[in-house]
């Protein structure tokens, strides 16, 4: 889940498994900046960057 000032959203990597996506596991507990589309309560992420790191997908 992504906690934001507007509420909580589920995160999903575009094309990723919505139920279990190991690629997103490292993000648990991190603050991130992401780009994507909001679909209902889910953020479909095209890219993301943990704040303080320069990793981008």
């Amino acid at each position: 889940m992504l906690a934001t000032a507007d509420g909580a959203y589920r995160l999903r990597r575009m094309g990723g498994n919505p139920f279990h996506d190991p690629d997103l596991d490292p993000l648990v507990g991190q603050e991130i900046v992401c780009e994507g589309t909001l679909h209902g309560g889910t953020v479909l992420m095209a890219s993301w960057t943990p704040i303080g790191e320069s990793r981008e997908r």
């Binding site: 999903r12 498994n17 919505p18 139920f19 279990h20 679909h39 889910t42 479909l44």
Partner: peptide, 20 residues
């Protein structure tokens, strides 16, 4: 099977494993 929003796949389940 399982399905998810804005997704073109359906998923099986065994325990906590959800393969396509």
């Amino acid at each position: 099977c399982h399905g998810a929003p804005a997704d073109w796949k359906f998923y099986g389940q065994h325990g906590n494993s959800y393969p396509v």
